[in-house]
Each structure stands twice: as structure tokens, then as C-alpha cells.
Simulated scan of single mutants.
Amino acid sequence: MLLLTGSRGFIGRALTARLRQQTLAYREINSERGGVTRPDNFRPFTACGIRHVIHLAARVFVPDSWREPGAFFHTNLTGTQNVLEFCRATGTGLTFVSAYLYGPPEKLPVAEDHPLHPDNPYAQSKALAEQLCGFYAREFDVPITILRPFNVYGPGQDKRFLIPWIIHQALHEERITLRDLQPRRDFVFVDDLIDALLLTLAPAPGLTTLNIGSGTSVSVAETVTLVQSLLGTDKEVTTENVRRKNELDDVVADISRATGMIGWRPKTSLEQGLKNMIEELHTPRGARQGEPRAAGS
């Protein structure tokens, strides 16, 4: 039996759909009644035979983290502390989904031993949560795998994020307008991340940290071109030439450790992932398999 936090968020919905396909039993803690920030919400699961926790619940949108840093630290740090305490008390292993924490890379590709330079409140909250994971693994013998996904995308993602926003504009706006076309990102399809999560259900003792990415980078401009090619559109692309605070020019994940330790490799090219997103948008809701529920953390 698995315990999932954040199962109604973007990644959580993809994970629960896969678990249902594979008939794997799971229980859920979601954002209702305080979610992971309230220790009492974990008590009903202490005698359920939980063998592993996948901790997805988090505040995640970076621009929001600059406006509400306290809310991000509360959810992402306090929530992780409560998860870790549940794991310590029940002898349960943990998979913690972290984030890109490396800041401007000193070299590419970026390996897990690269110095951490969290450069926004969201990343800082995840870095602090990782420190808690390290402490519980070291001092309380909780077996923990930390996954650091790079730029996750896929069907059902909030259109505030880059790829859904590009697709939305290509379909519904007169032109495609973006802040900056130059940055390069390592995009990883959500189904490939789910593969990685499922490979961590029998964690090694101690603490293991793994990058999850494609191992390549694509510019925003190249992504727009690919989206338009798949949609058959040729809309004007304009840029505001505005760089986000602490913008990164290029990021590429070194995924050799994930391949060596858990046998994971990404299977989905950016082109195929974009096709899947576009097909999902044109599929009638009643015909979708594993129909996702309302978004949330």
C-alpha cells in the first residue's frame, strides 16, 4: 500500500492514473483540511500497512513564490517535516520529489554533486526540505530517494507554465508572445517522471539523490517552432525581451546516476510529448482514460 501526497496536482494525477492501470493500491492526502501541513491528517494511515510514501504535495509556481515566500516555506518545509515524521514513526520508505536547485550551472550537464544554489523561494524551500530528508536518513535510518526533476511538462499542466502556455497561444491567440526566446531547458515528459517514481518504491538504505531529465536542452524559440509545426500554425512570435529574475541561460541534466542506480532512462522525445499534449486537448473528456480530477496540491 502506497501513501501519496499531492495526488490531485499535475504530477499526482498522472501518477494515480498509472497506479490504477497497474492495480496498485494507494491512499491519498490532499489539500483539503490543511493537507500535509497538519500532522493530524497522517494519523488515519498509521495502521494501514503503508509500505512507501511518495511526497508530491508542494507549492510550485516560481513567480508566486516571490510574492508569497512564507506560504511556500510553510507548505514545502512543514509538510515535508510531517511526512518524514510519519515515515520515522511507521518505518516507511520515502520518495521525495524535489526540484532543480543548482542555480547557474558551473558546467553542463549538471550532476547531482554540483553545488546547490537555490535562487528563488520555491527552490530554497525544496533545498531546506532536502536537508531535512538528509537528517532523517542519517539519524533515524529512514530510507529516502530524492528525485530532482528538471522541466516537467505534459497533459493537464497549468497553462501558466511554459509549454502549455505556448500551445494555448498557438491554438487560441492571434500571435505567440513570450518574455524571452533564448533560454534553453531540459524538458522531461511527465510519464517518464512517473516511470522514475515507480522505480524508487524499494529504496536503498540511507539517502539517494537522482536527477530526472532528458539529458538534452531545447531553446524556447525551438520549442515554439516545434509546437507550430505539429499544429500546422504559422503565427507571429513576439518577445517582450524581459528576463525573469535569476534566469538561467541553459540547463542540461546529467542522468547517468539514475540510469545506473535504478535503471531509468527517458523514453519520450519532446516531439512525442508535445503530440501527446495536443492529442489530449482534442480528446472528448468522456473518452479520456484515467480522467483526472480537479487540480490541487
Rank of each mutant, 00 (worst) to 15 (best):
Q22W: 10
F150S: 06
L201V: 15
D40R: 14
V251E: 07
K107P: 12
V110F: 06
V242G: 13
A127V: 08
F45S: 08
I194Q: 02
D192Y: 04
T177W: 09
L147Q: 07
T233H: 03
A204M: 11
F42L: 04
P69C: 08
G290R: 07
L2K: 03
E174H: 06
C87T: 02
V83C: 05
F161P: 06
L132S: 13
F161G: 10
R138A: 09
A99Q: 12
Y136Q: 05
A111W: 11
R18S: 06
F73H: 13
K126L: 05
P205R: 05
H282F: 15
P205A: 08
P69W: 10
E271W: 11
V218F: 14
S229E: 15
L116S: 01
Q169D: 01
L2R: 01
R27I: 12
F73E: 12
V142Q: 02
R13L: 12
P39T: 10
H55A: 00
F150C: 11
L197Y: 02
C48T: 11
C48Q: 12
E247Y: 05
L132A: 08
G206I: 04
A129C: 09
L193T: 00
M261C: 15
T268E: 10
E271M: 12
P266S: 06
P44V: 11
A123S: 03
S31G: 15
T239S: 11
E112C: 10
D180A: 09
D40L: 14
E240H: 12
R38K: 15
P63H: 06
F72N: 04
S214M: 14
F42I: 08
Q131Y: 15
E28K: 12
A204G: 11
I144Q: 00
R59F: 15
R88S: 04
Y153V: 07
A204P: 10
V110W: 02
E222I: 07
A196F: 04
P292H: 03
L210V: 03
G103Q: 02
V251P: 07
P115V: 00
F10I: 03
A14S: 11
A137F: 07
P164W: 03
P104H: 07
A287P: 14
P143N: 00
H52Q: 10
H172W: 07
S219K: 03
G260P: 15
G286Q: 13
R8S: 10
T177L: 09
T90D: 14
T95A: 00
Q182H: 12
Q81F: 15
F161S: 08
A170V: 01
T223S: 09
L193I: 00
S297D: 15
R257A: 10
P155G: 06
N82Y: 07
V220Q: 01
L94V: 12
D195H: 09
D64N: 09
Q228V: 03
L210Q: 03
N246Y: 09
Y153G: 05
K235Q: 03
L231T: 01
L198Q: 03
G263M: 09
I255R: 06
P44Y: 08
V251N: 08
K159I: 14
Q157N: 12
A71Y: 14
E247H: 07
